[in-house]
Design a protein around this nucleic acid. Structure first.
Lengths: 212, 212
DNA sequence: TAGATTGTTAATCGATTAACAATC
DNA sequence: TAGATTGTTAATCGATTAACAATC
């Protein structure tokens, strides 16, 4: 279904389209033009049409886009029709928060295991899944066809743990550790650096204060 | 200290520079050239020099950049020499995770209050701060000079709560709710949409699988 | 058919990279 | 002074926007 080499700028906008289309669908809206969607989302209609056309023509001249069809297509493009098995490494507050936030499950991201190096957490359950010691990771990953690892551990251990995970055959890492991972080509890494985000906010507050 | 209209692309890279320079400083490195930093960070030396020069000349020809000086300057640009008072709205797993992750405090982000609409959480303490009912927000914000609100509540209530916060005089919102907030100009919003991030990862896994 | 709106090409804008003169 | 490396201008590249012919 995909064409080749779509820029990450486009990919980064797809989840937002997906969210708006989902809302429209829930509201019972059947069709929408790029113009209407552009007003709703505060982006140009031109960008919307360009973005969608990277993946083929989803609309119809003189009509616009069918909301449900477009929603389903974007869902497929994002791979949400596939099931992914994930484990969370680091069962502290953040790891538990992500484990518990399982709207993700609706999208095909199934939590299979939780691991932590702190023996005090061992056996603690998050959504019915017990925390295991780190020593179990290798066997668990291989036995349970795990493709995504969520890294919610301190940056001191993140690089080494990521390397192990790659050896065990993981395909993707959702990295919350505040460090850049260096993984082989073909392993996907998506970083969520919360403190970077907070610093950006800090910059924008400061700049605005100074200018107004 | 700031010049005018720095692009968000540049701002977005500053925290990463800051992180690398902090590490170099901790390692006792005194000076670094754009070339060396470029190899370390996997970006072009040209981009590094352009980025820094948006804010004035921090280097010296023939020498490079003084690590500690540059670190301090970026810290100031990011506004990390100022103190911000923040509250967390939504004391569920994610709210608690952020409250507990207080490396932020080192950077001048001081947690002052936690709020939740769930009476069961009332009085529960996170780092010594008790969760309060939502009704208390208005008075608390005004009395405690709060400038940043962290929104870790479901999207159904986020838009309304954000509007109230703006009325109470908040200056910035760190938004973890999966919805776009519509706030007046001058109020800074930084979004962390975790499911968008996971969907991007999903796309990249799928695409890679299909191509190799 | 006439009107609407896409798909797509062309024009513009902005961000990144290359090159080099200035200068420590 | 000679060598190194920045600061900055110019060239390139890519992303966004505008325009319009194709077509439903």
């Amino acid at each position: 279904m995909e064409q080749k080499e779509i820029s990450q700028a486009v990919i980064g906008r797809l989840p937002r389209y997906f969210r708006y289309l989902g809302d429209l669908k829930d509201e019972g809206v059947e069709r929408i033009s790029s113009q209407e969607l552009s007003e709703l989302m505060q982006v140009t209609a031109s960008q919307i049409r360009q973005d969608f056309n990277n993946f083929g023509g989803f609309g119809q001249q003189g009509y616009g886009y069918n909301v449900e069809y477009l929603y389903d297509e974007i869902s497929k493009i994002l791979g949400l029709n596939q099931t992914h098995h994930l484990i969370i490494i680091g069962a502290g507050n953040l790891g538990q928060a992500i484990g518990n936030y399982m709207n993700f499950e609706r999208r095909g991201f199934i939590l299979k295991g939780l691991f932590d190096s702190n023996p005090a957490l061992e056996g603690k359950e998050v959504r019915g899944i017990a925390v295991q010691p780190m020593e179990n990771i290798e066997e668990f990953v291989k036995a349970n066809n795990i493709d995504i690892a969520v890294l919610t551990i301190p940056k001191t251990s993140a690089v080494a743990v990521a390397e192990s995970l790659v050896r065990y055959g993981i395909k993707a890492i959702w990295n919350f550790a505040h460090v850049d991972l260096n993984v082989p080509k073909g392993i996907q890494v998506e970083n969520v650096h919360l403190s970077d985000s907070l610093m950006k906010l800090s910059y924008n507050i400061t700049r605005y204060d100074n200018e107004n």
